[in-house]
């Protein structure tokens, strides 16, 4: 059995909403191992985002326990959680969340500012990550000068720059067209092949099929946890492009 990255034990999250007591997560016990590519699925309100916030150390559970790299997160202060996020987790968001009017390089550098990485080393690492996602020639471009797909790749480079134990991608293709979405999934699959642990939150089963394990949430409960042979994003991308060529020819 490979090394455990995240483990939740009887995880619960309760909200008080308009006088109503809401159980957003009910008794979730899950283990995510090193090198897993997990898709978290479910309709909106199923608790998948809440689950992601929990393991992403963005929110504290109401009950139960989360272990990240063997470290319990339950009792940590906001400042300590920020340190944990910086060290172990790389976020990719649906809306990219890049800093406007800031170069791609400086955007990727951001997490390194918060752990006092020496300036030169930080630059070198950020540059390497941008090269890895295929944007080595666009270091000085600002988000407004980049396409949606390129912006998301900058965001992925930013998630990678601290070499985190876990990459959390929340609907990373949600704001992209099919082709660029596939390109992003192709990139995530490449990272998975290089040994990264990835948790992907999505409500699209096509996208979830690129992961090797699917968790299905409904009404705050985990209703299915299965492994599958992932579809290849590269293959689908090639197919799509072929079709496009034909359409143009016709």
């Amino acid at each position: 059995m490979s090394h455990t990255v995240v483990e939740t034990k009887a995880l619960e999250k309760h909200y008080q909403m308009g006088g109503q007591h809401l159980r957003a997560l009910k008794d979730i016990s899950i283990r995510i191992a090193q090198g897993d590519f997990v898709a978290v699925m479910g309709p909106s309100g199923s608790g998948k985002s809440t689950f992601m916030n929990m393991i992403g150390c963005l929110d504290a559970p109401s009950r139960g326990q989360i272990l990240l790299q063997g470290e319990a997160l339950t009792q940590l202060s906001a400042a300590a959680l920020a340190k944990v996020r910086n060290k172990y987790i790389g976020f990719v968001f649906q809306q990219f969340n890049l800093l406007p009017r800031t170069s791609a390089l400086d955007n990727v550098l951001l997490p390194l500012l918060y752990n006092n990485t020496p300036r030169d080393e930080a630059r070198a690492r950020a540059q390497a990550c941008l090269q890895l996602v295929g944007l080595g020639d666009r270091l000085d471009h600002q988000p407004s000068q980049l396409s949606g797909g390129q912006q998301q790749r900058v965001a992925i480079a930013r998630a990678l720059v601290n070499d985190p134990a876990l990459i959390l991608a929340d609907e990373p293709t949600g704001a992209l067209d099919t082709e660029t979405g596939l390109e992003v999934m192709q990139l995530l699959q490449q990272l998975h092949q290089q040994g990264k642990t990835i948790v992907l939150v999505t409500h699209e089963s096509d996208i979830a099929a690129f992961a090797s394990r699917q968790l299905l949430f409904k009404d705050g409960s985990l209703i299915s946890d299965r492994s599958s042979i992932p579809h290849s994003a590269s293959a689908e991308l090639a197919l799509l492009r072929q079709q496009r060529m034909k359409e143009v020819a016709v």
């Binding site: 992403g56 963005l58 906001a78 400042a79 920020a82 340190k83 996020r85 910086n86 060290k87 976020f91 968001f93 809306q95 969340n97 800093l99 951001l110 997490p111 918060y114 752990n115 930013r158 601290n162």
Partner: peptide, 16 residues
């Protein structure tokens, strides 16, 4: 606000 959220997500402590 979103920038602040992002900075916090990538590791900025409230103090910073």
């Amino acid at each position: 606000t979103r920038e602040i959220g992002l900075r916090m997500a990538v590791g900025a402590e409230p103090r910073i």
